[in-house]
Amino acid sequence: MVEQKHSKTKTSFYRRLYIAYLIDRGINTVPAITATTGMPRRTAQDTLSALHELGIECEFVGATKDGHYQIQQWGPINQSWLTDNLTLIQRTLDYPAL
């Protein structure tokens, strides 16, 4: 089977959507995100910082040591599409199924 190479634009977009999805499902700290996806800590932090570029409002709630991220507003993102295409996103990013 030939492995398909995806563009950086596509993988970056999917990564942002996936992290927002995880946060919305309670996997909402950097350690939990890195444990679930296997992505480096810095990538997780950079992706969290970039969610606003998609119109997703995400804020950190609580104290530094025991706080978590929370999606306040999904903006133009269709959550139904995201849920329906979760397997495609996970395969594209080479992340394990939840």
Rank of each mutant, 00 (worst) to 15 (best):
N85W: 02
R15V: 10
A97W: 11
A44P: 03
N78G: 04
P31K: 06
T64V: 11
G62E: 08
T43D: 12
I33T: 05
T87F: 09
F60Q: 10
T37Y: 04
Y14T: 05
Q70C: 13
R15W: 08
L51H: 04
Q70T: 03
I56Q: 06
L51G: 03
A97E: 14
Q79S: 08
Y14A: 10
E3R: 01
G38R: 07
P31M: 07
I89W: 00
N78F: 08
P40T: 10
H6V: 06
I71S: 00
M39P: 04
Q4H: 12
M39Y: 10
C58M: 04
E57N: 08
L82P: 01
T34H: 08
A20S: 07
G55L: 08
F60R: 09
K65M: 13
I77P: 00
D24C: 01
S7C: 06
P40K: 15
Q70M: 12
P31T: 06
I23D: 00
E57M: 10
S12Y: 08
S12F: 09
V30F: 04
Q79T: 15
Q73V: 06
F13Y: 12
R42K: 15
P40F: 13
L22D: 00
F60G: 08
W74T: 06
R25K: 12
P96L: 15
S7H: 07
L98P: 15
H68N: 07
P96N: 09
T9R: 09
H6G: 04
R42G: 08
A35E: 15
T11Y: 00
Q4W: 07
I77N: 00
I19K: 03
P76D: 15
N78I: 13
T34G: 06
A63K: 11
E3P: 02
D94Y: 12
L54C: 01
I19L: 11
V30D: 10
K8F: 00
M1K: 13
G62C: 03
I56Y: 05
N78H: 12
A20V: 05
G62D: 05
R42N: 14
T34Q: 12
E59V: 00
T36H: 13
I56K: 02
H6T: 10
Y69P: 02
R42Y: 14
K5D: 01
P31R: 08
E3Y: 04
N78P: 04
L48M: 09
G26P: 05
A50W: 10
F60K: 06
T64W: 09
Q72M: 10
Y95T: 05
I27Y: 06
L88K: 15
E57L: 07
L22R: 02
W81H: 13
A20I: 08
L82I: 14
L51I: 11
Q73H: 15
A20C: 08
T43P: 01
A44M: 11
T83I: 15
L88N: 13
T47A: 10
Q70R: 14
G75Y: 10
A63S: 14
H52K: 05
T92H: 01
